[in-house]
């Protein structure tokens, strides 16, 4: 599957533009993903402790966003990119403590890479959607 196919599919139902709720969801997921990456970076650089990492991940509210937009997210490939970002962050929020105790602090390096990729995909999806929207508006003139 090519990237253009993936990104063009990441709109409401694979056709048309994201709804207003969808756009809000994508932006919130992107913001949460970026902040989570910063937190993981600070933790990796030992600028914050594990307890601080977990507390600040919880403050990002990934679970709340998932709960609020669940009808839009679940089973909808159009929002797969947002779902992936929010899913990574919400599981970190709940289980980072167990993960660090069981596998050690270095185990978060892989999560950082995975989240970085997921945020990248989401960012490209949002940009692609914005481009489509601009083309669509241009075509109507």
């Amino acid at each position: 599957m090519s990237m253009s196919t993936i990104t063009s599919d990441l709109t409401a139902g694979g056709s048309g533009q994201p709804s207003q709720e969808g756009e809000e969801l994508n932006q919130q997921a992107l913001a949460i993903g970026r902040r989570a990456l910063n937190l993981l970076r600070y933790y990796g650089l030992e600028q914050i402790s594990a307890d601080e990492l977990i507390a600040q991940l919880a403050e990002l509210g990934a679970q709340s966003i998932l709960a609020r937009h669940w009808p839009l997210l679940a089973g909808n490939p159009a929002y797969a990119a947002s779902f992936q970002v929010l899913q990574i962050v919400s599981t970190l929020e709940v289980e980072a403590d167990y993960q660090i105790r069981t596998y050690g602090p270095d185990s978060l390096h892989e999560d950082f890479r995975e989240l970085e990729l997921a945020v990248g995909r989401l960012r490209r999806a949002i940009q692609s959607s914005a481009l489509e929207s601009a083309r669509g508006s241009g075509g109507e003139r």
């Binding site: 490939p77 159009a78 797969a80 599981t91 289980e95």
Partner: peptide, 27 residues
């Protein structure tokens, strides 16, 4: 039952899989 779609691959790795299993069990 929660995944965005059958065509979207689940490419979780390592600790992420473990977290998700535990997350399901607890949530």
């Amino acid at each position: 039952s929660i995944w965005p779609g059958e065509e979207v691959p689940i490419m979780w790795k390592g600790a992420h899989k473990m977290r998700s299993i535990r997350y399901f069990l607890s949530a």
